[in-house]
């Protein structure tokens, strides 16, 4: 497991931010993100507009997502950045290790 720390090694993402990131592999607008997350989690995560708005601002500030050109002049589209992809990959590795360990210990 790669233990090296680099400047982009941000703290573990919250579930909210994590789901927003993986929703933005392709460009999507705010409300689209809410609907996509609802779909992906089968209705378990119904995110509030205020919660999303704040999370989007943070993610943009941290360079994990970026605003991209959208066909609608009114609604902005967002997309994950390379930095964001790297962070997601790191997190997925972390969760895979976590799952393996958890399943094994629970089975005992």
């Amino acid at each position: 497991m790669n233990k090296s720390k680099n400047a982009e090694d941000l703290l573990p993402l919250t579930e909210t931010s994590f789901y927003i990131l993986i929703s933005l592999m392709e460009p999507l607008h705010g409300y689209g993100i809410l609907k996509k997350i609802e779909e992906m989690t089968h209705g378990r995560i119904l995110m509030g507009a205020g919660t999303l708005y704040g999370a989007l601002k943070n993610l943009v500030e941290n360079g994990l997502i970026v605003e991209v050109e959208s066909d609608s002049e009114r609604r902005r589209n967002y997309q994950i950045t390379e930095t964001g992809r790297a962070q997601v990959t790191r997190e997925v590795d972390r969760y895979e290790e976590l799952l393996v360990n958890a399943r094994r210990e629970i089975e005992k």
């Binding site: 919250t14 909210t16 809410l34 119904l46 995110m47 509030g48 507009a49 205020g50 919660t51 704040g54 999370a55």
Partner: peptide
């Protein structure tokens, strides 16, 4: 309509 803030973190942030 879903609540505006759905987690404690963002509610606190407000």
């Amino acid at each position: 309509a879903v609540e505006i803030y759905t987690d404690a973190h963002s509610k606190v942030a407000k």
